[in-house]
Design a binder for these strands. Structure first.
Lengths: 195, 195
DNA sequence: TTGACAATAGAACGAACGTTCTATTAGGAT
DNA sequence: ATCCTAATAGAACGTTCGTTCTATTGTCAA
């Protein structure tokens, strides 16, 4: 099962290592990744990869994670035309983790069931990121307890009175009489197509 | 601006360091993070954090990234009831990067404009992850070129004939006469609420 | 003020890191 | 076959890492 060594396979293996270990491998560990027995050979390959711009070091001299391992190229909007692979290289890259999660400690992920927010494009089976402890603004999608059950609603506050509305005509608006039991604000929606 | 040192602040600062540098800090670097002058003090704090279960080491002895910094707790479905903080600890955690991106090299992110897939819960402004070079199955949402413009459609193939349908009544189904220009398959949808 | 204990500083140490060096092997061209 | 170059192995080296030790400082109670 020995695969031919090339810049691409080395890049991919390092990328996989980072994905699993969340850190870059040491030179000793890279001997296994490359299938060689000497650190000097690793040094040889790392130098080559750095010359190609595939690998980089940070200000402290540590190897930076590969761009490809956690970042994805973000290309333009659909109707602006489909960019060529060459164009893609020039675009921005984003990390989904960093993009989606601004406050990791106070956030959690919830799997959606029910269709109360279907009009907002939040479907059963989707994942939503919920951030706790933030004051909701009008129009925010929030997680709230209604009749002892947790559900998602649009939040509106007018003149001190709170209205919770669904994005689905099946469910009538709710005007909670007492205090509102607030689970958090929906900050992101994630849907993965099964594969 | 000197903040009182506590387990929580130390945890947060390490978390921030990892978010920016994509690696855990060295003890020397942690002296700055903690505002102390000796590595032995860092060792003292790290030991304390490890006893609390906040920090961990991997099999090689390297400090693992904090769970909170890239992983989020995944709690149950909404209608199953809202879990308490205690329950949350027992649930799974997921990394959005790993969850969403199965093939990093052949994927890219696209910002959606247009409402052709609104019925599928894909709205203008959403981000979609597109995977290139995969054969679409019936019912898949794909990125395809129609009349020189790239757009998203449902893919259906019946008896050798391909039908592209929108999730929006405004747009009629399309039966491409010649070869289909396929951009890729939509593998995920991401929406972030502005904040 | 004194004593007890926790927190910190600073030096010293072994281990592992990345680098560099020389020697050997492999492959292709002449 | 011979030469030339690229790739590899293995050893040696300096640096930095994390750890451990002792000494000093700070804090609170008696």
């Amino acid at each position: 099962m020995k695969e031919k060594r090339s810049l691409e396979t080395v890049e991919r293996r390092i990328s996989e290592f980072f994905l699993h270990n969340r850190r870059m491998p040491t030179y000793s560990e890279m001997t296994d990744l490359l299938g060689v027995r000497s650190k000097s050979v690793v040094h040889f390959w790392v130098k080559k990869l750095m010359a190609k711009g595939v690998l980089e070091r940070d200000s402290k001299g540590f190897l930076k994670p590969l761009r490809r391992s956690l970042l994805l190229p973000l290309v333009g909007e659909i109707q602006a035309g489909f960019p060529s692979p060459v164009e893609e290289e020039l675009r921005d890259v984003i990390s989904l983790d960093e993009y989606l999660i601004t406050r990791p400690v106070s956030s959690f992920i919830l799997k959606v069931s029910g269709d109360s927010m279907i009009g907002e494009g939040i479907k059963p089976g989707d994942l939503v990121i919920v951030e706790k402890g933030r004051e909701p603004k009008n129009g925010d999608v929030i997680l709230a307890q209604v009749d002892g059950e947790w559900t998602m609603k649009y939040f509106t506050k007018r003149g001190g009175r709170i209205i919770l509305e669904s994005a689905n005509e099946k469910y009538p608006p709710i005007r909670p009489k007492e205090e509102l039991r607030l689970g958090g604000i929906i900050t992101a929606v994630i849907r993965k197509y099964h594969r």
